[in-house]
Simulated assay, not measured.
Amino acid sequence: AQPHAISHQAAASRAAVLPVSKPAREKPVRETVAPRQKSAEPARREAEAEGRGFTFQGRKVRVDVVKAELPGLGPDNRAPAVLILHGAHGLGDGSLYYPQASALAARGITAFVVHYFDGIPQARKAAPSLHDEREQVILEAVGYVARQSYVDPDRIGVFGLSLGGFHALSLGSRDSRIQAVVDQVGAMPAEVQRRGVTYMPPTLVLHGDKDRTVPVRRARELVSLMEQLGTEHEVKIYAGEGHTFRGAARTDSIARTVDFFSRHLAADRGLLKKDLDIDIALGPALPPTLPDRDYAPPRDTLADEKLLQRPDFRSAAE
């Protein structure tokens, strides 16, 4: 079929009967302000993080790497490393994590900000019932960090905030690869402590005495446990601070964290635990030579993690 053609004469006659439209009046352009996005990008760019990652059960887990600025601190120019574990709200705008990573890098420690929620397919990624699944992702992350050519695998630490602090303490109590732990507003899982903890690496505890999400008594219980174990530890309770540190307390917490890891991941601390035979009631510590998948954490180790599901926690900024 031929396309329907309109003659110039017909087109002209049509134009003659069509009303002439007046030019539309221009409406004043209103400047709109985009809503603020809860994105980690600004803080990540500030930290100059290098995006990397690994695959866990078919899912890509992102890891932002902020490399040490002072290379050559260890054998073969390898630096110590710290994994940074976020809280139950994820990374948020990144302001609680990437400045920390930059401060560590400035002191010669490579920081790895682990998006461990990437490895969890369920919607409620912070649910207590998913503790073991999250811990398996974090264990894979430790292995990933240890395999990097620029990392000294004998000098690895973990920093955890809130939910990340629960995981950092649980991991430090059973994984011999972890040489130091910093727990900020987290706690030792009650079930882990009930079954028995016989070892903790050097640990720094940071907490606010007005924390309504994870009460400060949990920090004091943790300190009491470490005193019983003879664990080398430090503690700072910030007066007037809640679940999120602000102002001077936040600045001080970063400085204390960096100083703690600098001292406990120094070159002469690397082999401290390598030859120790640690008998842990929850199961054997994972030797550095064993694959990560051989580690089997106990079920329901964060029964008390229900604290993190409270309304005041869900509405709090992490």
Score class of each variant (00 low, 15 high):
L96S: 11
Y97L: 02
A101Q: 05
A101H: 08
S102E: 03
L104D: 02
L104G: 06
L104V: 07
A105C: 07
A106N: 12
A106L: 06
G108A: 07
G108I: 13
I109H: 14
A111Y: 11
V114F: 02
H115N: 10
Y116A: 00
D118I: 02
D118S: 03
I120W: 00
P121K: 12
P121G: 04
P121V: 03
P121T: 08
Q122T: 00
Q122C: 02
Q122S: 01
R124V: 01
K125T: 02
A126D: 10
P128F: 02
E133V: 14
R134P: 00
R134V: 01
E135I: 10
V137M: 00
V137S: 02
I138L: 01
L139I: 04
L139Q: 10
L139K: 07
A141E: 04
A141L: 03
V142C: 11
G143Q: 09
G143L: 04
Y144W: 15
V145A: 08
A146R: 15
A146V: 09
A146Y: 07
R147G: 05
Q148C: 10
Q148K: 14
S149C: 07
S149I: 09
S149Y: 08
Y150G: 05
V151T: 13
V151Q: 11
P153E: 12
R155N: 03
R155H: 10
R155D: 01
R155K: 15
I156K: 15
G157K: 15
G157D: 06
V158S: 00
V158P: 03
G160F: 02
S162M: 06
L163N: 13
G164R: 12
G165P: 07
G165T: 08
L169A: 06
L169Q: 13
S170K: 14
L171H: 11
G172E: 01
G172K: 10
S173N: 11
S173K: 14
S173Y: 11
R174M: 00
R174H: 11
R174S: 02
D175P: 13
S176E: 10
Q179C: 04
A180D: 01
V181F: 11
Q184L: 08
G186E: 03
A187N: 09
M188R: 13
P189C: 00
A190D: 06
E191M: 15
Q193A: 10
R194Y: 04
R195M: 00
V197Q: 08
T198H: 12
M200P: 03
P201G: 03
P202F: 05
L204G: 05
V205P: 00
G208D: 04
G208H: 06
G208E: 04
D209G: 09
V214G: 07
V216N: 15
V216G: 09
R217H: 06
A219S: 15
V223A: 14
S224T: 14
L225E: 11
Q228D: 12
T231H: 10
T231R: 12
T231A: 05
E232P: 07
